[in-house]
């Protein structure tokens, strides 16, 4: 279980997160929704250890991991699919996947995980020798997810996985999140696609200017007037 308690973080003097608390139960999908600049990406990056928090605790299986560097956080089983499908364009698909298994927890099982990921994404298997920069947007997103799986995470932080993808591909990505969750991986889903992500999630949090303003089950939030007005345009 991941538990964030009273987390504050920012850049220089600018506050991006203020006193954020949330709970991610094991093997669930948790959605974090909010407008641009609400602090969603900062939250993901702080949990992942890329940004050092100012205050607060991040408990992972009861241990405070706030402020640990990202390579250690990764090795504790918290993977991240960063915003914008950041694949390495000059490396091949297979090399990109290999990079996901550099952390100690994943090294020994690299070959087995590699086969599993290619089974899961047959498109990647077809293009394993191709430079990642030549893949389509959807394929790159699959590669980014596959690469994250190579690190054998227990929890994956998804940052805007559907950003800039065609609607049909968006469905495919969300379907993948559901499949991974069914296989026992806890998912934290940060999305601008509010309706789809809340529909997918057991628990949701609404982030506004760095604070959690609403929380509840996905269905509750979808029915909430404030959410409907602010994010669904209803």
């Amino acid at each position: 279980m991941l538990e964030v308690q009273g987390l504050s973080a920012g850049y220089g003097d600018a506050v991006a997160l203020e006193d954020v608390s949330l709970t991610v139960p094991d093997k669930r999908i948790v959605a974090i929704v909010g407008a641009n600049g609400a602090g969603k990406t900062t939250l993901i990056r702080t949990i992942a250890g890329i940004i050092r928090p100012w205050r607060g605790r991040i408990l992972w299986h009861g241990r405070d991991i706030a402020g640990l560097p990202s390579h250690i956080v990764c090795n504790l089983g918290i993977g991240q699919v960063a915003e914008g499908r950041q694949v390495f364009p000059s490396l091949s698909v297979a090399e990109n996947l290999d990079l996901g298994a550099m952390i100690p927890r994943a090294r020994d099982s690299r070959a087995a995980t590699f086969r599993r990921v290619l089974e899961m994404f047959p498109r990647l298997a077809e293009r394993r020798g191709q430079a990642a920069g030549t893949l389509s947007g959807g394929e790159q997103q699959m590669l980014a997810i596959g690469r994250c799986l190579m690190g054998r995470p227990e929890l994956i932080l998804f940052d805007e996985p559907s950003l800039g993808l065609a609607p049909a591909v968006v469905q495919q990505v969300l379907e993948t999140v559901r499949t991974l969750n069914a296989e026992g991986i806890t998912c934290v889903l940060v999305e601008q696609n509010v309706a789809a992500s809340l529909a997918l999630s057991e628990v949701g949090y609404v982030l506004e200017t760095g604070r959690v303003t609403l929380s509840g089950s996905g269905a509750e939030l979808l029915a909430d007037d404030r959410v409907r007005q602010a994010y669904l345009g209803l």
């Binding site: 560097p69 990202s70 694949v87």
Partner: peptide, 20 residues
């Protein structure tokens, strides 16, 4: 070389993968 190129291409993504 493999890690260096990854870090050169995209440090943010490399860091997200747990590359030191």
């Amino acid at each position: 070389g493999f890690l260096w190129r990854a870090v050169r291409d995209d440090p943010v993504a490399a860091e997200a993968l747990g590359v030191n």
